[in-house]
Design a protein around this nucleic acid. Structure first.
Lengths: 448, 448
DNA sequence: CTGTTAGCGCTTTCAC
DNA sequence: GTGAAAGCGCTAACAG
């Protein structure tokens, strides 16, 4: 392998000079530069980034963990992230856990061991929050809660659920079948979250002595029984998408519409979606509406066609997610659409800020004394946005560099970006005046 | 950052001892090991893989380049690769060029600059073959020809095309619309390939003086005009999938079946597929069959449903690829199926071998003198499979370590793995006796 | 068995 | 402007 030393020797200069021309840093006379460049070409020199990275302790690689890249939702999300991150100078390394037998930890280790600069976590995890918080390196959570110090991005599922339910209610639906993830899993997550919340906020009034106030039994479905989503879940759950179901059901309950929940085994099990679609028709022949994740919704359309059930007259179908599969499922499926652009954008943004912040912090740790002036200014500029709570009126305070106390180790609290969802109209739902008004307001009809 | 030195100091031992326990190499007394481990935990030590990798000049990361991860075909392929590679101890870093604005070179640079150990290239590239061959590091091509020294993996598209055409012919089709990639692009590729082939095999009889015998004009469609696929393309083309179209058309021509080609702009343009589907029905109302890439085929089904065209009675639809979208397109679409497992397997295998080979070669270069005995044996074992041509009767010869001549620098020639395609039966084609016989032979009907 | 030492290939003060 | 030298954090001889 030809290294800088070889180039230097061949060009009759020192390695540091070679380094200067390779990186375009500092001033090098034209003559020297020419000699060096000639030598580089002659020897076909390629700088070893591993060495460079070792020095800088930075790889410009960020990891993305998703359950499976095969699923259109995650494929789209990943593509978006990759685009945003690339623009910011990062390469992406994706780990789709279901496609390799697990091994999520291996990727987390890459982060820990400095083979990547940050990690966006959008996959399932059985690890407790302290596994994540203990990493002490830039992590961003997608659609899940990973710990108090870890920013979390996701759609506003509560709004999404309400939107779906409202549309059904306004179009006169009487019985909807809701297809979704394993309800029991939500239970576990809720349980875990409650325990975690207790541990986190341990400073509150002493608990009543019982080991942990877990919901009834793990096999019993989470439900509202009269309470609001907020009452059940609080400000954050370990798995935010559950808010969609709770809000959906709550809205339906209020409207006096019957609903039944049908479980699909797990995201990566495509056959499971088809089975669920079939079951929906088998088990609830009197139902007149279905809401389901894209893939399952597509199978529902297919099933309806096969059975001669007229859509949307006899049966309305609504997809939750709105990936491209809703466009090619035999009919364009009406969907509650996640804003992939915005999601990718927000997640990437957080990641980039977190990395910048971490870097700035390291810098500080090194030059223990001062250097706070210009150096930190640049980093802080990016970092400040990342750490700020949405809370009002902190205004100018963040900006100025006067922090004589050692920098606070962790950012404030849960920083969650909620991205709103929209409706993408298709041919699988009925358009009533009420629905039209919901979507477009009272204004003149605005045909797409 | 806490490093080995800190651990060593805290444990009162030397760094090398720490290294030994971290890596489980060599013998360390229980007492020492305990002290070291205690120190590691106390300091929360995490080894820096960057440093380790620098030393070993190996990252255990392989890159995968595809046009877009959003497309089910590439998503599935990528997932498969990731699985196989992970099992072999590699992490995957995927680059989907269309999802970030190009930037394929950046990833190739990661390979060149030792940030990855190998690269599987499955994306479009405008670069000439010598760009690829000059990399001099492990590269494997998927569905494309990148140069004489670069192994290439892909489905047997010629067989696939013939299969599709035969099925149509046997079911009595009279006019098929063929939807596929930009034909002009194939032309360019062919042209480039021919030029390259000339350069490669320059030792042949001197060319007739003309600059280069390029096909008529770049805008004119490649076609057979009586010649066989072999005549037109030869042993390898820059873009093997074109063989599918040529074989398809040739077979149809022989059967006297009319065909028309409809272009779709590019893989990553999903809307383009829908437009093409619509055009197929608009422009060729008398056609009674369509063959198209999965996504386009799905839109064709949708279009047929919308127009009230009965499938498969009035119109047969066949998909080329057979990803999961053919299962949820309103009807199960009959498809010519790529064997994703086998493809991923073959590509990963080649990659792993190539990396092992490269490593073995490096080893040799270092210990210039000997060391050929056991050391190389291990590497060669893996390497031999990778480099061997399919040629018969080399048998035992490969095994024994007696190679006194300096190892041949590059593997023999184009090493291409051809993976056969199959038919996945759906509801969009007609099953005639003849077709049945084609698929299942003369034996007793074997209902699925 | 354990410690000392010399790098892996590049970057970056700091003198000349 | 350019070179010499001291690492980045870890590994692997080679002595003890």
């Amino acid at each position: 392998m030809v290294g800088m030393r070889d180039v230097a020797r061949k060009a009759g200069v020192s390695v540091s000079t070679v380094s200067l021309v390779v990186n375009g840093t500092g001033y090098v006379s034209a003559a020297m530069r020419a000699k060096v460049e000639a030598a580089m070409h002659a020897l076909n020199y390629v700088p070893n980034e591993l060495a460079r990275n070792l020095y800088h302790d930075r790889t410009n690689v960020v990891g993305v963990i998703v359950p499976t890249i095969r699923h259109p939702f995650f494929a789209t999300l990943t593509a978006g992230l990759q685009g945003r991150l690339f623009d910011a100078g990062f390469r992406t390394i994706v780990c789709s856990t279901a496609d390799m037998g697990g091994g999520e930890e291996q990727y987390v280790d890459m982060l820990r061991r400095h083979m990547m600069d940050g990690l966006i976590m959008g996959g399932h995890t059985a690890h407790p929050t302290n596994y994540w918080t203990s990493i002490q390196r830039p992590v961003v959570a997608f659609d899940r809660y990973l710990g108090a110090s870890i920013p979390s991005i996701g759609s506003d599922h509560e709004q999404g659920g309400e939107l779906a339910a409202t549309m059904f209610a306004l179009s006169g639906v009487r019985h909807v079948v809701e297809i979704g993830g394993p309800r029991s899993q939500y239970n576990d997550l809720l349980t875990a979250q409650m325990a975690a919340a207790q541990a986190d906020v341990a400073s509150d009034a002493a608990a009543e002595g019982e080991s942990a106030p877990v919901p009834a039994s793990a096999s019993e479905a989470v439900s509202l029984s009269g309470r609001s989503v907020q009452d059940v879940i609080g400000d954050h759950s370990t798995f935010p998408p559950i808010r969609y179901h709770l809000a959906f059901e709550q809205t339906l309950d209020m409207a006096g519409i019957r609903w039944d929940y049908l479980e699909v085994p797990e995201v990566s099990d495509f056959a499971g979606y088809e089975a669920a679609a079939r079951r929906a028709f088998d088990r609830f022949p009197e139902a007149d509406a279905i809401v389901a994740p894209d893939m399952a919704a597509a199978f529902c359309v297919q099933e309806a066609l096969r059975r001669g059930v007229r859509v949307p007259d006899q049966m309305q179908i609504m997809a939750y997610d709105g990936t491209y599969v809703t466009d090619l499922a035999g009919m364009r499926i009406t969907s509650i659409l996640q804003d992939f652009e915005a999601l990718a954008d927000a997640a990437a943004r957080r990641m980039i800020d977190a990395i910048a912040g971490a870097e700035a912090q390291e810098m500080q740790e090194k030059h223990v004394t001062g250097g706070a002036g210009a150096g930190v200014g640049g980093g802080a500029d990016a970092g400040s946005e990342g750490e700020g709570e949405v809370a009002s009126g902190r205004g100018t305070r963040t900006g100025d560099g006067r922090d004589d106390a050692p920098v606070p180790a962790k950012p404030a609290g849960v920083v969650a970006d909620m991205v709103p969802m929209q409706v993408k109209l298709g041919e699988t739902t009925r358009m009533t005046d009420a629905v039209h008004q919901l979507l477009f307001g009272a204004e003149a009809a605005q045909t797409d």
